[in-house]
Design a protein around this nucleic acid. Structure first.
Lengths: 215, 215, 215, 215
DNA sequence: CATGAATGAGAATTCATTCAT
DNA sequence: CATGAATGAATTCTCATTCAT
């Protein structure tokens, strides 16, 4: 499908000067605002520049095209959220089941908290999905999940590990995304998150014995 | 977000003559082709008309706007697939667990079979999602699922039934869609489908006792 | 200005058959409706035909183009109104001043009664104004006015008669049209009509002595 | 009638650089040319841009739509002419009757001088008439006329002043417009102007005693 | 660094009109 | 007579992007 001409996602220069940083930040903020409030169809280079109060030519000084800006934003949020998850997962004091529960809940919460923005990002990201940069981003998430699975489920064949990682990843993310697209929220959302984690815990025999802290 | 102006999805005239039917068909085929092969961003009225070999004005004689054409296609496939599911579900000979398994498998297969097209349709449908026509389509699917749940899980409170219907619906569709977006296929896809159905069966205690045929 | 390509205003055939008459009538009615309710910018051949419930090709069977239809309508109303005026003017029992007063009042009333339609017709008629057919229509009105002037003001040079006819004609019609464009109505409209007639009567010394009936 | 969608008449950016000013000027000139020589039906954004030798996208960089351009032109001429009238009216040395005569004559001359353009503007302005901007323009003219009336006719009730202002305004402008639409010119035009002013002077008892200059 | 200005290409939609049946 | 179908040519407006200053 959609042999969307592959675009260069690498920022042109990431301005070191003070002025430059301010400009980039203004652009990113404006873009985020537009995606969230006006939706992906209003996410155009000109509108972003105007909202940011910078000249359109400046936009193209920092981003080779609007997809690069989009990627920049996607990457920022990913990096931020990945950080959160990592912390979560590394809390070895809790047992794996507890950690799975809080992982799922956290995922749901993150999605729900910025439903508009995240939905817009997802829709807009269609044009970006098969770039190597985007895939690399996804891979980073997978690695994290894999580590967690290993620890929670114990040793298993490489193939199984692969499968399980992918399965659980897809299961949680796809559900969370879709349900927040539908603007599920509040009690129902929590009930869904709980049910989903229990299903996973049961299916994969994720244990309730807390890992010992590494000395 | 994205207050997509609501558009009229009702076809303009229905074409009684042979020639008209051919034209509409050409348009629909061209649209399907473009969505599948070129992706949603190439899905424009002009391109569709050109590919179909009809004048753009003819396009607008049959569809008030391109969203109406999109909806026409979405509805066709839905109607078609819904029919399949209904059959599947109505096969009372099998026990509910079996039927759940085949429901999930079927869903996965349908998605996988036309991954490109279906992904494109999903992306393009963003512009259509909050029309009453589209919602009506979705509602039809929900009703079917609900009936199945009642039968498989036995009586339950209205609230629970609601929740379960939504949960299982989201679970299966979101997973199937996302995994075919990733072009999972073959053995892995089947393994995923199986695992997903087993999870659902276990979680919801879907029975293995065949319903008695109604006399 | 506006070298608006001169168009043929002659109806193609004025169908003698029953069916034909009904068709033409439907078209005319639909056109009138559209001009009045939707305004001149909605006055298109296709819309008229659709509203009339006849095929667009039928439209072109009776009118060579939409201007011809427009002219047909304009002419109808003119003929109708001209008839009224003629009656009015011919009522020799009243004195000329009275007749002038009632002429003006009548003109204002006609305009006001169908303000929407008449305004639309005026705007649409721009495309038609410099056809000989349209001019002929106007000329007919001028002749009538001239006759009235002769009688009311007594004999005068051809040049003066010409000038006066034109002057009074313009004065009354332009004022009436413009004030109804502004949707003046009710008491104010009547006051305007009265004031206008008094001005004319005074300026042109239009007498108060009733003409004797021709024996 | 004609619920003409209300459009934004505010110019987009004002162009500080020399180049921009030249562009805007080219657009305005081209528009004026087209309106005058080709008529309102040729007044399209594309044709204007083409005639101006600028890209259509540039057109839309300076005007949000063609109505805004139209309004820009209308406003320019109004501002210009209003200035003239104000001067005229403020010449307190002459007595009111004289000033009325010259007011009417001036009005007729202005209309006649650019008959083609002004007729085209009037026709095109139909789409603009019920915007607040356009009304504000008209209101400015009314204020001026009212001041003049007060001075020429002396004190009167608010209602009468209102009525008289409106009446005289309509009378003069509608007549002048219509007669130049008919391309009356030269001696006949002057004769009409004179006759019209005499009628007004007589009807409204506009005095011949010069106002004393304010000390 | 930043801005003002410009533009090729294309999207959505409409209109008057014709032709074959 | 009437209709179903079709279309060339416009029209309005937007978008991503570049270039000169």
């Amino acid at each position: 499908m959609a042999v969307a001409r592959k675009r260069n996602l690498v920022p042109k220069k990431l301005g070191k000067q003070q002025r430059a940083k301010a400009t980039v930040e203004a652009i990113v903020e404006a873009a985020t605002y537009i995606l969230e409030k006006k939706g992906p169809s209003s996410f155009t280079a000109n509108k972003v520049a105007e909202k940011a109060g910078v000249n359109i030519a400046s936009f193209y000084q920092y981003f080779p095209n609007k997809e690069a800006l989009l990627f920049h934003i996607v990457k920022s949020t990913w990096d931020h959220n990945l950080g959160k998850f990592e912390q979560n997962i590394k809390l070895r004091v809790e047992n794996p089941a507890q950690r799975m529960r809080s992982l799922v809940r956290e995922f749901f919460m993150i999605e729900a908290a910025e439903a508009d923005l995240r939905q817009a990002l997802r829709i807009a990201s269609v044009d970006i999905k098969d770039t190597k940069e985007y895939r690399a981003l996804m891979a980073a998430g997978a690695v994290m999940m894999r580590d967690f699975i290993v620890e929670a489920m114990g040793p298993q064949s490489a193939a199984d590990l692969d499968f399980n990682t992918r399965f659980i990843g897809l299961l949680i993310t796809s559900f969370a995304e879709r349900t927040t697209d539908e603007r599920t929220s509040g009690a129902e959302l929590i009930r869904q998150a709980n049910m989903l984690s229990e299903m996973v815990i049961a299916q994969f025999g994720i244990g309730t014995k807390a890992n010992k802290r590494r000395p």
